[in-house]
Design a protein around this nucleic acid. Sequence first.
DNA 1: ATCCGGTGCG
DNA 2: CGCACCGGAT
Length: 368
Amino acid sequence: MKPGFSEALLGWFDRSARPLPWREAAGSGYRRDPYAVIVSELMLQQTQVATVIPYYERFMARFPDFESLAAASETEVLKYWEGLGYYRRAKNLLALAVMVVSRYQGVLPCEKKELLKLPGIGPYTAGAILSFAYDLPEPAVDGNVVRVLSRLDAIPHLQGDPKSQRAVRERVAALFPPCRAGDFSEALIELGAAVCTPSAPACQACPINRYCLAFSLSAVMDYPRRRKDLPKPASQLTYVLIREGELVYCRRRSKGLLSGLFEFFSLSGKYGKQEEGHVRPAIEAHLGAKVIKLDYVGENRAVFSHRIWEMAFWEAEVSGGAGLIPRDGPDAPQGSLLPVSVESLAGLPFPAFLAAWRDDFISRREAQ
DNA sequence: ATCCGGTGCG
DNA sequence: CGCACCGGAT
C-alpha cells in the first residue's frame, strides 16, 4: 500500500465519524466498554445502525452490565429485542452474559480464542471486541469491510463467502497502522457504511479514492460480487387472536423460526374473508369452546431470509375455553395455548408482524 | 419488489 | 460449506 493510506482514512474518520451511542468513551483503561461493544455489535449483526440505536438505548438502560443481564429472564430479554429480528442473537447474548459472570468472574476475556468460544461471537465480532474495546490490531471484517477491500484491490470477492472473509482478514491485518488500531478498524466499517456503499458509492468524496484500484478502473460497481439469493418458498397460514373475556390465547414457539417468541393461535392454510366456515369450526375443535363472534382482520406477508409466510388474520371471541387449557406458564411447550390477560399481552415478545396487530388490538380494547 | 447482512449447525 | 435465521430501508 502506498504511504499515507491509513493517515487519509483516519483523518477522514476523525472529521466524519457519526456520534453513535456506543461510541462514547469508556472509563478504566478500555478504549470502549467491552459490554457496550458486545451489546451493540450483537444488535448490529444483520441490522442497520438507525434501527439499532433506540434498541441499544433501551437495552443498556435496563441491562447496564453483564451482571444485570445474566440475572434476567429470556422472555424479558426477548421483549427488549422485539422487532429487531434474528432473535437467536438475544438468546446468545443472555447465555454469553451468564457465562461471563459464572466462568470469567464478570470480566470478558481479551483473547480471540476465548472470545470465539462464547455464544454469538464469530470471527467478525471477536475482532470488533478486540479492536474496539481493547484497541488491538485484530481485523473486524464484516460486509462493509469486504466491500471496501474488494474495491480497493479490485478483487472480485464473493459476499458472505468464508474464503473471501479470510482473505480480507489477512489483508486488513497487514494494513493496520502502528497505533490507533481501534480507530482504524472502525474507520474501515464506517467508510463502507457511509461512503463505499453497495449501490451508490460516493467515490468523489472518498478519502482513499486515490488508493482504490476499482475506482481507477471505473469499475467500482463490479466489486464485490453478489451471491445470488435462493428462491424463497412461500407457505400459507391463518392467525386467530382469540379472546375470552379479558384473556387472550397465546403460545410460545419453542424451536426453529421465531423460537422463544409468542404468537396467537394458528392454522396451516390461509383462510380469507370468504372462508369463515372453515375458521370457526377449527377454533371450536381446538379449544373446545364456542365462538361467539368472529371478524376478519386482514392479510399480511412476512418475508424471512429463506421463506415467505402469507397470512390471514382473524379475531375471535369465545366462551367456555378456559377450563380446557393447560396452565403451564410461559415456558409451555409449543402448541399448547395459554391464556394471557390483555394487560400482560404488551409485555410478551411477539414477532414484528404480530406485534403491530397486538398493539392495535390493545389500543382498541382500551378505547372501549 | 428488491436489497442488505454474521453465526452456528449439520 | 450450504443452509437457517428477520426486519427495515430503498
